[in-house]
Design a protein around this nucleic acid. Structure first.
Lengths: 144, 144
DNA sequence: TTTATTTCGGATATTTTTATCCTATTTATA
DNA sequence: TATAAATAGGATAAAAATATCCGAAATAAA
């Protein structure tokens, strides 16, 4: 469904959020260890998230990655996915037609529409906060 | 959502079905032209569909690809997708955890569950016949 | 039986995605 | 100001997906 980069980006964001609740910045090394991802590749993804204003980075000694408290509430999965994979999930035709709309639909256009709308809705409604709280409470897990 | 291979496989199957209604076998060349795909790569995908018993091939002069009439009705999108992409769409964890179930869910487990079920249902309920008839009647399109 | 036609299948090439490495730049503290 | 600790970012490598090429095998018809 998502690219590896996107998977890592979502999990990293959650881990950063958890630590930011405690005012703690985290490094790519810590993040990669916690979400079981390749460190250097994860660092690249973090750069993309910073550039897209999803998370914040602090350079230099005692630096690291963090997220503003209020952003943990406002950032949705859709923001993270969009920062990494772009909007291809929403826009692309299910069968790869260059032009696919109501007037010129691909064979699965209508059938995919409902599913994609559901996905879109879910991504736009799910906040980082919700996901982070579930990890904190041990209701869900970031690895294995 | 799907791999290119899978997109080509679905479109090719539809085109073959349409021609099989008229007792006509089609070649990878014709198929590739009609669905706007690379010919040799499409031929590989057709092989996979033959091996997985979705379509039928006839070698030699006057040969080509075809689908049994009754199969056009019974083959569902799920069969085609499974023949090419395997069952990763159903089984894989949305965030790539090796182990992800009710007892040990990833952060988006429940949220993805509904969407994946919807996708699964759609793929299992949509027949090749339905898609082929819509193309024949000009209700949907295979390219552009 | 020969020939033309067609799928099969292995080898290879290209592109994209995933992953690694190393240096530059930034910054807090001693 | 010097130093150590971080992120930034460019260059490169490896793996996977996509795509191409070509000879082998099969088959219908002349």
């Amino acid at each position: 469904m998502f690219s590896k980069a996107c998977e890592y980006g979502i999990k990293a964001s959650i881990f950063i959020a958890i630590n930011s609740y405690e005012g703690k910045r985290v490094s790519p090394k810590e993040i990669a260890k916690e979400i079981d991802s390749p460190e250097a590749f994860t660092a690249k993804i973090l750069q993309a998230l910073v550039k897209n204003n999803v998370i914040n980075s602090v350079k230099g000694a005692y630096g690291g990655f963090e997220i503003d408290r209020n952003k943990i509430q406002t950032v949705k999965l859709a923001h993270i996915v969009n920062a990494i994979d772009g909007n291809s999930i929403y826009n692309g035709c299910g069968l790869g037609l260059h032009k696919c709309d109501e007037a010129h639909p691909c064979p699965v256009h209508d059938k995919f529409k409902a599913i994609r709308e559901g996905l879109k809705h879910m991504l736009e409604e799910t906040s980082l906060e919700e996901l982070a709280l579930n990890i904190k409470s041990g209701t869900s897990f970031l690895k294995i």
